[in-house]
Design a binder for these strands. Structure first.
Lengths: 235, 235
DNA sequence: CACTGTGAAGGATTTCACAGCG
DNA sequence: CGCTGTGAAATCCTTCACAGTG
């Protein structure tokens, strides 16, 4: 169960969520490089391709050990293997998808969510038209059967893709099993989970509004700059 | 065009992206409170409902002005109005959706992306079966017509929901119009945009992998703790 | 020589702690 | 008295700068 290659190095305590996000991106890039028969890459090259400073890349990788050769760079295959091992779970995760609406379907079909290391094993919905069907080979069960199916499938992680009004209620049904340890929440609800459960929120409309606000700030700066350049003092 | 109520206060320069994200959440919460006829709320109450420290709530709001009454709290209606004004754009944004796959459809149907202040006006795809159709009332055009339609509709913001292999190519077609100032990228590609264009990435699989890695770290800590509690020293 | 690995500096964000006020 | 608003402290994250090395 605990095999050496996937163990996270001792400095692990310093690996933050932000670093992990970048590690995932590095790994994706390395896969592409390997496909293109690139065998060597520098932190500068990685950074340029991802829009990150090279020092950030080196710092991130340094948390995991010493992978590079000074004066040379990183061996693509070796680094890819090491990153893959570090990111890989000890055992594959079984994931349940709650909510088979448009977003749920999009997620279940999302190729990036079909890995060797984790798998959406089934979905849940309260719409009788969907219950009993299969989407991309994943069966859809009624929300009322969730607790039972979570145990049957050994599901430890849930993806929540239901309307925010019902998100907490439906989640609580699942938490009652005591078997859920991680939740990825796509609803706009601020979900409550016990402290031992990891919760992560992806709020699509917040992301859009953040972007639009940045644009507004820029617009305002431009407009105010204009006013100032007309020199109110001089009039 | 520049109306007073939507102007961002002078301290605006301190408003960070993170703060904006929380402001959006505060506004959503306030709408709910107002619907439930709550008229008064404290920073502590807001924080508790959203899983945030009350000091964070107060600091965020303080960037925008003084909205609360000491010893009392915040007036829900007043604060809601102020936040709405500050977050509202000077003019509604016209948004184009690139990619009408499952994720694109989910986004176009996502109720949260239909606001008074922004609207997805149309979609683009390269699949002839989709071009010419309408989804949720939004017409779908061919990617080759994108530049023309961006100008026709006055689109300033794009949502990218195409496979990462083609994302940059398709985006470049749009950027050539010189009219795009913001891009919300759902693909896994690290997109390049000119410095005057705001880019924001929402990477669904990175979010999932980050969560799974946190779970792995916890698991490892537990396992190592177990080893330690067996007290190798004592044997 | 070119690049990594990393302490130390610099920035950014959160939290504290308390003065100030209704 | 209770809660806001805010400097100051603490924490977290990124960038710099350079010693170290193949």
């Amino acid at each position: 169960m605990l095999n050496r290659s996937t163990l996270i190095p001792d400095k692990k305590s310093e690996i933050t969520d932000r670093t992990v996000g970048r590690l995932v991106a590095y790994r994706r890039l390395l896969v592409r490089l390997q496909d293109n028969d690139v065998t060597l890459v520098s932190s500068k090259a990685i950074g340029d391709m991802l829009g990150i400073k090279s020092s950030q890349v080196r710092k991130d990788l340094s948390y995991l050990g010493e992978f590079g050769k000074r004066g040379v760079g990183y061996n693509v295959g070796r680094l890819l293997g090491d990153l893959t091992g570090i990111l890989a779970p000890f055992n594959p995760w079984q994931i349940g998808l709650v909510g088979m609406g448009r977003l749920g379907e999009a997620l279940i079909g999302h190729s990036a969510l079909w890995g060797e290391n984790y798998e959406i094993v089934c979905a849940f919905d309260n719409d009788d038209a969907k219950v009993g069907t299969s989407v991309f080979g994943k069966p859809c069960y009624h929300v009322n059967d969730m607790a039972r199916k979570i145990e049957e499938y050994g599901i430890g992680v849930l993806i929540i893709a239901v309307p925010s009004k019902v998100a907490q209620r439906v989640l609580d049904l699942a938490l009652d099993t005591g078997q859920i340890i991680g939740v990825l929440n796509f609803s706009a609800a601020a979900l409550a989970v016990p402290p031992e459960v990891e919760l992560s929120d992806v709020d699509i409309s917040v992301e859009l509004e953040k972007l639009l606000f940045r644009l507004k700030l820029k617009e305002q700066k431009k407009l105010l700059g204009l006013v100032e350049s007309m020199g109110s003092d001089d009039y």
